[in-house]
Amino acid sequence: MIEEPPILSINGSMKRPSSSQVEAFQGVPTGFVVDALFGSGALNRAIQPLGEGRDLNRSVAGPALTANCGPADILATLAALKFIQDGDVVVSAFAAHQGCAAAGDRVTGMMKNCGAVGFVTDGPVRDYAGIVEVGMPVWCSGLTPASPYASGPGSVGFPIQIGDQEVETGDMIIADRDGVVVVPFERIDETLANLERVREAEEELDAKVANGLKIPDSVAELLDSDRTRFHT
């Protein structure tokens, strides 16, 4: 007789950034992080802050805890509750299924009770008012009242595909009103070093704009060079 496959698979060796690495990303805009990653890392724009951030206008930065659910099922997300550490962002791959909710107010409430600071999924969620009351920042594809199943199969802690990116447990997730960015675990220190350069460049440009800058210097120089041709 063929043995039944397991309903759940749990990664027993999950990476996690240091507390100092996590702290260094707090309050950093997602655009800065993308620039520090040289244009990579952003999840597909279909994954947006719940309600466009009107009622849960908060940025979060924390280690990813991944749940691979598959379409219309949330068993892996429920199992992930057991493994949440303070400051985690639960990232649930729903196979971009849009036919039912990937979570609701009770599930996000339990995540918060376990110490999570955010929830990211490529599916919709339900119970908008309840999620706002819970106070859990959520990034998702929208809203639906339809209920999911919780029968599996699913996995927790393994690499997932979500929003055109691969996310592993222990990667850094940075999310705000602009969207969600993932920093691979192996690139955290590199990205933090690059962030200093990005901050300096942004602050310099902000000052120039505030002082009346109309056209970036590099564009003005290009327009005045032989690399630009005017046609009459």
Score class of each variant (00 low, 15 high):
Pro153Ser: 05
Val117Thr: 02
Asp178Leu: 15
Gly104Ser: 07
Thr232Tyr: 15
Ala93Thr: 06
Gly51Arg: 08
Ile2Ser: 12
Gly51Asn: 06
Leu192Ala: 12
Gln48Met: 01
Lys208Arg: 15
Ala210Glu: 08
Asn57Gln: 14
Pro17Lys: 01
Trp139Glu: 01
Glu202Gln: 15
Glu221Lys: 15
Ala116Arg: 02
Gln21Pro: 07
Met14Gln: 15
Lys15Asn: 14
Cys69Val: 00
Asp206Met: 11
Gly135Trp: 10
Ile162Ala: 07
Glu202Tyr: 08
Glu200Gly: 06
Asp55Val: 09
Ile173Trp: 12
Asn44Gly: 00
Ser92His: 08
Ile188Tyr: 06
Gly152Asn: 03
Lys112Ser: 07
Glu221His: 13
Pro49Lys: 10
Lys82Pro: 08
Arg229Glu: 14
Gln48Tyr: 00
Val182Leu: 10
Ala116Glu: 04
Lys15Gln: 13
Ile7Trp: 01
Leu205Asp: 01
Ala96Asp: 03
Arg58His: 08
Gly87Thr: 10
Leu65Glu: 11
Asn44Cys: 04
Asn68Trp: 02
Val34Ser: 09
Arg227Ile: 13
Ala96Phe: 02
Pro137Ser: 04
Val33Asn: 10
Leu143Val: 11
Asn44Arg: 08
Lys112Ile: 03
Ile7Glu: 00
Gly31Ile: 11
Glu52Ile: 06
Leu8Pro: 01
Ile74Ser: 05
Val132Glu: 09
Arg126Gln: 10
